[in-house]
Simulated assay, not measured.
Amino acid sequence: MELAYWIVAALLAVFYLYAGGKKVAQSQEQLQPMMGWVDRVPMPLVRTIGALEILGAVGLILPPLTGIASWLAVAAAIGLALIQVGGIALHLSRGEARLIGLNIALLVAAAATAWLGTSWL
């Protein structure tokens, strides 16, 4: 279970560091081709989502790695799952049901990470 946690958590962390970093660092025009929803969401909220994704990625790795407050890894995984619930709701509100596949995969991966974390942390 521990190995499974590290594999899934590492993959999620890499994804969220990349996606969150883009949301924090790039302009709305730069994000638009990859994330069409940024035209309907205020940029401060996009930046906040990006920062939360980066914090979630760090929270998946750092606490269990250091052994300090390992329960934060489970909280980070739950937080990342909630971000995906919001992403699914946003896509559905825009009539983009065909685009929720990645959100569902990330939601399942985050939920699995939370579950795996509770089994050994």
Rank of each mutant, 00 (worst) to 15 (best):
E2Y: 02
E2F: 04
L3E: 13
L3C: 06
L3G: 08
L3I: 15
W6M: 06
I7C: 10
V8H: 08
L11D: 09
L11W: 12
L11Y: 09
V14H: 04
F15Y: 13
F15K: 08
Y16G: 05
L17G: 06
A19L: 09
A19I: 11
G20N: 02
G20W: 03
G21R: 09
G21Q: 10
K22D: 01
K23L: 13
K23Q: 13
V24M: 15
A25D: 02
A25H: 00
Q26I: 07
S27T: 15
S27R: 06
S27Q: 06
E29V: 12
Q30K: 15
L31N: 06
Q32E: 14
Q32Y: 13
M34Y: 13
M34Q: 11
M34K: 13
M35E: 09
M35I: 11
G36P: 00
V38W: 02
V38D: 00
R40L: 12
R40S: 14
R40V: 15
V41D: 03
M43H: 03
P44S: 00
L45S: 06
V46F: 01
V46L: 04
R47V: 05
T48R: 11
I49L: 10
I49A: 07
I49V: 14
G50M: 12
G50C: 11
A51K: 01
L52N: 08
E53Y: 00
I54H: 03
I54E: 04
L55G: 08
G56W: 03
A57G: 07
A57T: 03
V58E: 03
G59L: 01
L62F: 14
L62Y: 14
P63A: 11
A73C: 10
A73S: 15
V74G: 02
A76F: 03
G79R: 01
G79P: 06
L80W: 05
L82E: 10
Q84T: 09
Q84C: 14
A89H: 08
L90N: 13
L90Y: 08
H91I: 09
H91S: 11
L92V: 11
S93R: 07
G95F: 02
E96R: 14
A97Y: 07
R98W: 06
L99C: 10
I100E: 08
I100H: 05
G101H: 08
L102V: 12
I104F: 11
A105S: 15
L106G: 04
V108P: 12
A110I: 09
A112I: 04
A114P: 00
L116Y: 02
S119K: 13
L121D: 00
